[in-house]
Amino acid sequence: MRKTKKVIGLGVFFLSVAAPVTVLAHATLEQQKAAVGSSYKAVIKVPHGCGSEPTLRLRVQVPDGMVSVKPMQKPGWQLDVVKKSYDKAYQYRRGASLTEGVREIKWTGKLSNDDYDEFVFVGYLSDTLKPDTVLYFPVIQECEKGSERWIEIPAEGKTSRDYRFPAPGLKLMLPSSN
């Protein structure tokens, strides 16, 4: 078993080396699995601007089924939210029914193309969401000229890998038994 541990240790080591490289990539979620009927902290990882330009604004569309969303303030960034009614009423904790909330979050500031940053918000994954599906969080990076839209949602039988600008995805799991 000592050898096994060594292997895992090496694996973790390799991953930690590889990780900074792999995140030089699309806008993605840090935690890509969560159970329905639970709180979820979404951390959107943004590795670069649009090509060579800095990112001036980041917009996230809150997917249907994620309710009671609260974004996290970022120093140096102005935070705006768009509140609208949900597509239907959602049962929240302790029987509360929610019909409206944050549907879009905008952070306005400046992220140099050479830098990396994270954008955070929390919310509740309604238990009406289907486990074993993927919930997509379309993200738009607005730059000086043009924008990068991470909004492509895979068609049936395809995965994000088949797309050039895939929306960050969250794999929904069965609610934990406890």
Partner: peptide, 27 residues
């Protein structure tokens, strides 16, 4: 064999926890 396992493990870890998609683009 050892390296194969390492690679396999890396792949598994990569797939299961962090399917971050790369994005090299022509500027």
């Amino acid at each position: 064999r050892f390296m194969q396992i390492v690679c396999l493990l890396l792949m598994l870890l990569g797939v299961s926890s962090s399917p971050a998609f790369p994005h090299a683009s022509l500027i």
